[in-house]
Design a protein around this nucleic acid. Structure first.
Lengths: 239, 239
DNA sequence: ATACAAATATGTACTATAAACACATTGATT
DNA sequence: AATCAATGTGTTTATAGTACATATTTGTAT
C-alpha cells in the first residue's frame, strides 16, 4: 500500500483510523479423547452469557505476530507453543461496539500437563463438538481454524503439544481421531506415522492400563520447535 | 475478542485506533511464458523510484473482503476474478509513515485478454523473476503469495484466468512451468491434467503456429466461478 | 516434391502410497 | 486356567507418480 505522510495526517483520526485491530486465539486442547477449546465469557451486554475466543486489541507498539503470544501468555501463562496465523476477519458489523478487524491464530496446548493459571475465572475449556454458537463471528473463526488444523495435522508435527512427553500409538491415534472427527484403521495409521519419522521408540512400556501395555514413544527432538515442509506437493509435481 | 463499549470509547483516538488497515493485491498475470505481477511506482519519498503492490486503506464502511475487489477495480477496471486472502502483515515498522497493518490478497488476470484501463500511468507489469526488491515489505508479501499460488495451482482450477478462452495443452503446461518455476514432463503433465477433469475438448485445432497444431480446450463451465476442494487430503487419510 | 524442422500425441514399466482386511500375542482380571 | 481387552503385525489390491521413446502431423526451406 502506498500512503503519503500527508495523506495519513489528513485522514488521521477522521476516517481510516476509526478501525481497531485485534487478534483472537483459537486454543485447542485435548482431554479424554475429545478436542477442546479455551473460551471466555463474553462481557458485552449484546452477547451476555455467551462464550467467546480469547483475544485482545493489538497494542500500538507490538508486532501483530507478538500479539497472540501475549494474549496466550496473559490468559494461560503459557509460552513457547506453536501459534499460526489463519485468517483475518473484517465484516462490517462483526463487532457491535464499533469497527474491529481481527486476525485469528490457532494454538495447541496440553490441558493436563501445563497447568493453566486460569486467573480469569470465566475462562473454561469446552468440547469443540458441543459448540453450536459463540459470541461475535467466533463460531466462524473456530470453524476456519479447525479446518486449518485438520489440513495441517498430517503435514506438520504440530499436535505433539497436545500429548504428554511419552505416549503410546493408541493415544496418538485417539488424538488424530478427535481432531479429524473420524475413525482410523490402526494398521494403516501406524504405517503412515512410521513413514513420517517423527517418533523415537523409547523402549518403555505403558503402565496403569488394564490390558496389554503398548510401547511408548516421544517426538524427535529436532521437530519440537518448528518445521516447515511445504515443498512436498511441489516436488510431487516434478516429473 | 471481547471489548466493552466503554473501553472502546475510552481508548478511541488515543491508542488503539492509531493503527490503520490496508489491503494489498498481488495481481499475477502471464505473458510470453513468464509470470508477471502488476506494480505501481511508490509515491513515498522513503521509497522513491521503487515499485510497490497495489493497495489502499480499508474504508470505514467496507468489508475487508470487498476492499481488494475495489482496489482491483479502481486500478485495472477488472471485476469478477478470483481473489483470495493470503496473510496479514503487521510488523511494527513496515510502513514509514505510521502504523499500518495490511492484509494481502492474490489474484490472477489475463494480461492480453482483458485490456486494462491503466489510467495510472505509473502502473506496469513486471516479470516476477526479475523482482529483487520492492517498497515496504512488499517483496515478502509477493513471496508469500507466490508460495500460496504454487500450493494451490494443482488443487484448484485457479489459473484459467491467465489463459484465453481456448488454449492448447502446451499453453497450459507453459503456464504451469512459469508459475512453478520448473520444467514438467509433457506426458505426465497431460495425464495429471486429464485426471482433474477440468477441461473440455473443443474439437478444434490451434491456428497460426509454425508447426503441427494442437487440440484446443476450454475450462469446464461449472469450474469458472469458484470451487473448493479442501477435503481431498482428509479423505485420503480415512482408511 | 522432397526433405527437414518442430511440435503433437500417445503407452508401458516401475515404484510408491492408499485402503481394506484378520489373526496371533500379551498382560491384567476373575 | 479361562476370559477380556487391547497391542502388534503383513498381504493384497487399486490408484497415482515417475521415467522414458517413437510415430505423426503440419509448416517451411530447398
Amino acid at each position: 500500500m502506498n500512503l503519503k505522510t500527508a495523506e495519513v495526517e489528513k485522514s488521521s483520526h477522521l476516517d481510516y483510523f476509526n478501525i481497531a485491530i485485534s487478534v483472537d486465539c483459537v486454543i485447542f486442547g485435548y482431554d479424554k479423547k475429545e478436542l477442546e477449546i479455551l473460551l471466555i465469557k463474553s462481557d458485552l451486554k449484546e452477547f451476555e452469557g455467551m462464550w467467546s475466543l480469547l483475544g485482545d486489541l493489538i497494542k500500538p507498539n507490538e508486532d501483530i505476530e507478538s500479539a497472540p503470544y501475549r494474549v496466550l501468555k496473559e490468559r494461560t501463562g503459557l509460552e513457547d507453543v506453536y501459534l499460526e496465523q489463519v485468517h483475518t476477519f473484517g465484516s462490517l458489523n462483526r463487532h457491535p461496539s464499533g469497527r474491529v478487524i481481527t486476525t485469528a491464530y490457532y494454538s495447541l496446548i496440553d490441558i493436563n500437563h501445563h497447568k493453566l493459571q486460569l486467573t480469569h475465572n470465566e475462562v473454561h475449556w469446552h468440547k469443540v463438538g458441543d459448540i453450536k454458537k459463540l459470541a461475535f463471528d467466533h463460531k466462524l473463526i473456530l470453524d476456519t481454524c479447525l479446518q486449518r488444523l485438520r489440513q495441517q495435522v498430517m503435514e506438520k508435527p504440530v499436535i505433539f503439544n497436545l500429548l504428554p512427553e511419552k505416549f503410546s500409538l493408541r493415544e496418538l491415534q485417539d488424538l488424530y481421531q478427535a481432531i479429524l472427527g473420524i475413525q482410523l484403521d490402526r494398521r494403516n495409521f501406524r504405517k503412515k506415522i512410521a513413514l513420517k519419522e517423527w517418533l523415537v521408540d523409547l523402549d518403555e512400556m505403558e503402565d496403569n492400563v488394564p490390558h496389554r501395555p503398548g510401547k511408548l514413544y516421544k517426538v524427535k527432538l529436532d521437530l519440537k520447535p518448528k518445521s516447515a515442509k511445504k515443498k512436498k506437493k511441489l516436488i510431487a509435481f516434478v516429473s
